[in-house]
């Protein structure tokens, strides 16, 4: 999915050749893959990665984004009391390892029209840890 998006709309700085562009590409690749993060070389911790979501989400409460308890097996756009985008309500997604991984890799490509304005968790190992942690959350009380 990510490859498709990059191919469709390459960053303007990377169009054309030259050393400067190559350097920019290298830096971009480093950052997008998370190689420069503090967790590089360590096993990603899904709960810690979830802290990135704290501005909008929590496990137990609907906030700017919907709550995440009971996520595993739930139909997208179905949390009671949360006002989803039409795109999410009509996505026909059921959250599991595959669908959540695809969504978190690039939310706006996975569900065009989603109001979740987040580029995604680009590093695969971090995304996998986050997916596992989210899907292991208990049902909502």
């Amino acid at each position: 999915m990510r490859d498709r998006v990059i191919a469709r709309r390459p960053p303007s700085r990377l169009r054309g050749g030259g050393l400067r562009q190559a350097g920019a590409a290298a830096v971009l690749a480093l950052l997008l893959t998370g190689a420069g993060s503090a967790s590089a070389g360590a096993e990603p911790d899904g709960e810690k990665i979830y802290q990135r979501c704290f501005a909008c989400h929590s496990v137990e409460r609907n906030r700017t984004g919907p709550r995440h308890c009971g996520l595993n097996g739930r139909a997208a756009g179905s949390v009671e009391g949360y006002n989803y985008s039409k795109a999410m309500r009509n996505s026909h997604i059921v959250w599991n390892k595959e669908t959540l991984d695809a969504f978190l890799a690039n939310p706006r490509a996975a569900v065009p029209g989603t109001i979740m304005a987040y580029a995604g968790v680009k590093k695969e190992s971090e995304r996998a840890a986050l997916v596992d942690w989210l899907l292991a959350l208990p049902p909502c009380e």
């Binding site: 802290q51 990135r52 704290f54 501005a55 909008c56 304005a117 580029a119 995604g120």
Partner: peptide, 11 residues
């Protein structure tokens, strides 16, 4: 911290 990540993901 979440806000930092959110803006980083939005920029």
């Amino acid at each position: 911290k979440g806000a930092v990540s959110a803006y980083l993901g939005a920029v």
